[in-house]
C-alpha cells in the first residue's frame, strides 16, 4: 500500500488526509523532518506561503524537501504549495523550493473579497468540469518547456500544471468532495516513470 505524507504545519491538511482515506490510501501528517522518511508521495496543502515557507525553514524541513523535489519525488501542492514549488515568484521574500520551472504570482486575484469558485475544464481528469475553489490564490505567469499546463481560466491564465511527478494547483480540491485530482496524483505515484 502506498503511503502519502501531508505537510501538517498549518492549514487544511486534515481535509487532504480525509480525501486520501476515501481513496483507500494511507495518509499521515508530516510535522518533523524524520516524518518525511519512508513516504511514496507528499502533499503540500494550502496556507499562507509566507508563513509556511518561514515555518519550513524554522523546523529544518526546507533542505530535505528541496532534495526530494529535485530528485523527482511525487509531490502535489495546492495554493501556497504551488508558490513553494515554483522557480520564480513575484512578490515573495521568503525561500521557495524552486523545483518546478514555472513563474508564479501570489495573491494574483486580489484580497479575500476577490476569492472565488468556478468550474474548470481539466482534460487530464476528463469530464465533468472540476469545481475549483480559489482562496487568495496564485496563478502561473510563465511555464518552462518541461511543464504541462493542466488547466486554464477562461482568460487563458494557467492555474494547474504538471512537471515530472510534481502537480501544482492554484485552487483547493480538499475543500470539495471531488476525489479526481487526488486519484490523478495517486496514478502518478503508482506509475513507473
Amino acid at each position: 500500500m502506498k503511503k502519502i505524507g501531508v505537510l501538517a504545519l498549518q492549514g487544511a491538511f486534515v481535509e487532504h488526509i480525509a480525501l486520501l482515506h476515501h481513496l483507500k490510501v494511507e495518509a499521515v501528517p508530516v510535522r518533523l523532518p524524520q516524518e518525511l522518511r519512508g513516504l511514496d508521495g507528499l502533499i503540500i496543502p494550502g496556507r499562507e506561503s509566507t508563513t509556511i515557507g518561514n515555518l519550513m525553514k524554522e523546523y529544518d524541513l526546507i533542505a530535505l524537501m528541496r532534495e526530494l523535489a529535485l530528485d523527482g519525488f511525487p509531490i502535489m501542492s495546492t495554493c501556497a504549495g504551488m508558490v513553494l514549488l515554483a522557480k520564480n515568484v513575484s512578490g515573495i521574500n521568503s525561500e521557495t523550493l524552486g523545483a518546478m520551472d514555472i513563474g508564479v504570482k501570489r495573491n494574483a486575484f486580489g484580497r479575500q473579497v476577490d476569492s472565488f469558485e468556478t468550474d474548470l475544464d481539466i482534460p487530464a481528469i476528463g469530464e465533468p468540469h472540476f469545481h475549483a475553489v480559489f482562496i487568495r490564490a496564485p496563478h502561473i505567469e510563465r511555464s518552462g518547456d518541461g511543464v504541462e499546463v493542466l488547466a486554464r481560466l477562461p482568460n487563458g491564465v494557467g492555474v494547474a500544471a504538471r512537471q515530472g511527478k510534481m502537480v501544482v494547483l492554484a485552487f483547493h480540491p480538499e475543500l470539495t468532495s471531488d476525489l479526481r485530482l487526488h486519484a490523478y496524483f495517486m496514478s502518478i505515484v503508482r506509475s513507473e516513470r
Binding site: 498549518q10 492549514g11 496556507r47 473579497v113 476577490d114 468556478t118 487568495r136
Partner: peptide
Amino acid sequence: MDKGTWTVKTGLAQMLKGGV
C-alpha cells in the same frame, strides 16, 4: 465566477487552522 460565497468564506478560515 462566484465571489464571496459561503465556501470561499469558510475556506479561508480552513486555511488558518493550526495557526496563530
